[in-house]
């Protein structure tokens, strides 16, 4: 094939590549370069500021929030998957569960924050119910609007995300494998501990990583729920972007965003590797 006829088809990709360059790559590169600049010159100030006390504490909070909700979400999500998977895929129960999971996992955090405001805030439905009936004050000193509240509301979208991500793996377990194990004299317990769980483990781990990245980068829930202080990285980015008083440094936002890219990229790479391992037996 001549050089020209080889190049011609590639031209068809140009609009797509140009579009992604403008709306995805340019913003990303802006962030990476901007993180190492101050007043238009090369500077390490902002990256160094990431190791300052505030930024370190915020990062730690973010890691705790993402880690704990990933573990909780993955565990309970996997249990829910197991309960759902026995229903046939076309059953209305299964469709409804999957649709609810899709909405809660992907539809965005503002609405979910309001769901919990309606439930557990000072005049929330459950708060009032418990106050009137048994005299317990679940509102306390306003934990819903701090880190503990974020953990609860994040769990509310992490479990559904786990259901979406993990269900294909659980579905991929062939009934024949169980039959074979039973034929060879395995008990239910042996089947689970020696066949199913070792097979599912990489998928479970991978899904947990995805949940971690999802929580780490989530913004809307926290922005709606927390109006005072910046307990986690996304909110610190908001402060750096919008507030002239607290930090007032656009480039510090770049550095924080770079930190987020690094964390998420590491986690997602590990996820991709684990996914490849699972896909070996899934198809």
């Amino acid at each position: 094939m001549s050089r020209r006829s080889r190049l011609a088809p590639a031209l068809g990709l140009l609009p797509f590549l140009a579009y992604l360059t403008v709306f995805l790559l340019v913003p990303t590169v802006t962030v990476v370069i901007g993180a190492f600049q101050e007043d238009g010159r090369f500077s390490m100030t902002n990256v160094e500021a990431l190791f300052g006390e505030t930024a370190r504490r915020t990062l730690w909070n973010s890691l705790v929030l993402s880690g704990s909700t990933a573990v909780i979400g993955a565990t309970f999500g996997a249990i829910l998957c197991y309960l759902v998977v026995s229903a046939p895929p076309t059953s209305i129960f299964r469709r409804a569960v999957m649709s609810v999971a899709g909405v809660l996992a992907q539809f965005g955090g503002v609405t979910l924050a309001f769901a919990f405001i309606a439930t557990l805030s000072f005049s929330g439905v459950v708060t009032e119910l418990l106050r009137d009936s048994v005299g317990v004050d679940v509102f306390g000193s306003g934990w819903l609007f701090g880190l503990p509240g974020l953990i609860l509301v994040y769990t509310y979208f992490q479990i559904p995300l786990m259901v979406i991500v993990f269900l294909p793996a659980l579905e991929g377990l062939r009934p024949q494998w169980r039959e074979a194990a039973v034929n060879l004299g395995a008990t239910t317990r042996q089947y689970w501990t020696q066949i199913a769980i070792p097979l599912l483990w990489p998928a479970f781990l991978g899904a947990s990583l995805l949940l971690f990245a999802n929580a780490f980068a989530a913004y809307a829930t926290a922005a709606t729920l927390v109006s005072q202080g910046q307990p986690i990285v996304p909110l610190l980015i908001r402060a750096a972007l919008t507030s002239e008083v607290v930090l007032g440094r656009q480039n510090f936002a770049f550095a924080l965003a770079l930190q987020m890219i690094v964390v998420v990229a590491v986690v997602m790479t590990a996820y991709a590797l684990l996914l490849r391992r699972t896909s070996r037996w899934l198809r």
Binding site: F23, L24, T28, A213, A217, M260, I261, V264
Partner: peptide
Amino acid sequence: TIPALVIVVGM
């Protein structure tokens, strides 16, 4: 892999 938050910071 590139969260919306990062895109909005850089765009």
